[in-house]
Computed example of a mutant assay.
Amino acid sequence: MTYELGLHDGRVLRTRISHPADRTTYGPGIWSHILRDQLVVTDVEFWRCVQEGVLPDRGRPEVPAEALPAELVYLLINRVGLDEAVIAKMTKDEAVARLNEYWTEEA
C-alpha cells in the first residue's frame, strides 16, 4: 500500500508499507532512507509525531491570529479609500473603528 501526502509547496511525499521477503525487520539503512527520502523527517521528528502527536514542520503558512475579514478589507479599500499597505498594518479593532468612523462621517 502506498501513502501520499501533498505539501503546501507542491511536493508529494510517498511511502509504502511493505515487509522484507524473509519477514525480517528493516535494517538501519533502509529505515534512514524511509525517514530521510520518503517521509522527509528526522528520527526525532518521527518519534515525537508517533509518541506525542507533534506534527513535523511542513512549511505551512501561519494564519495571523487576527486576520481581517475580506468584506471589511473590501469596504476599507473601496468605500473609505485606504491603501492596502495601510490596512495590512491594522488590527481588526482598528479596521472596524475606521469603518465606523467613515459611516458616521457620511451621515
Rank of each mutant, 00 (worst) to 15 (best):
Q38T: 09
A88Q: 03
A70F: 15
E94M: 11
V54I: 05
E94K: 10
L5A: 12
N78L: 03
E45P: 02
I77F: 00
W31E: 11
A67N: 07
D9K: 13
H8Q: 14
D57V: 10
V50W: 13
R48F: 01
N78F: 06
R14V: 10
W47K: 05
L68P: 02
V73T: 03
E101L: 09
V63S: 13
R48H: 01
L75W: 08
E105S: 13
E62M: 07
E4L: 13
M90N: 03
R36G: 13
L5V: 10
E105A: 09
R48K: 11
A65I: 06
D93S: 07
A21G: 10
Y102E: 00
G53N: 14
A95V: 04
R79C: 12
W31F: 15
V63G: 00
W47Y: 08
A70L: 03
A70Y: 08
A21C: 08
L72D: 01
D37G: 08
Q51C: 12
V40R: 07
P28D: 09
V41N: 05
E101S: 12
T24V: 05
R98F: 02
A97Y: 11
E101V: 01
M90D: 00
I17K: 12
T25Q: 10
H33I: 05
T2S: 06
G29N: 11
E52W: 10
T15F: 09
D57Q: 02
Y102P: 02
E66R: 04
P20K: 15
D93Y: 02
W47P: 00
Y74N: 08
A88N: 05
L7F: 12
E84K: 12
R14I: 07
E45S: 01
E71I: 05
V73G: 00
E94L: 12
V40A: 06
L7K: 15
T15Y: 13
Y74T: 09
E84N: 08
E66A: 04
L55Q: 12
A21Q: 11
V44R: 15
V54Q: 08
L39E: 06
V41C: 03
Q38L: 07
R48L: 02
V41K: 03
L55S: 07
G59P: 03
G10H: 04
D22W: 03
E52F: 14
P69K: 07
E84I: 08
P61Q: 11
P69S: 05
E66M: 11
Y26R: 04
Y3T: 06
I30G: 03
F46H: 15
T91L: 03
H8V: 09
H8A: 14
E4G: 05
Q51W: 15
R79A: 01
G27T: 15
A67W: 11
V41G: 00
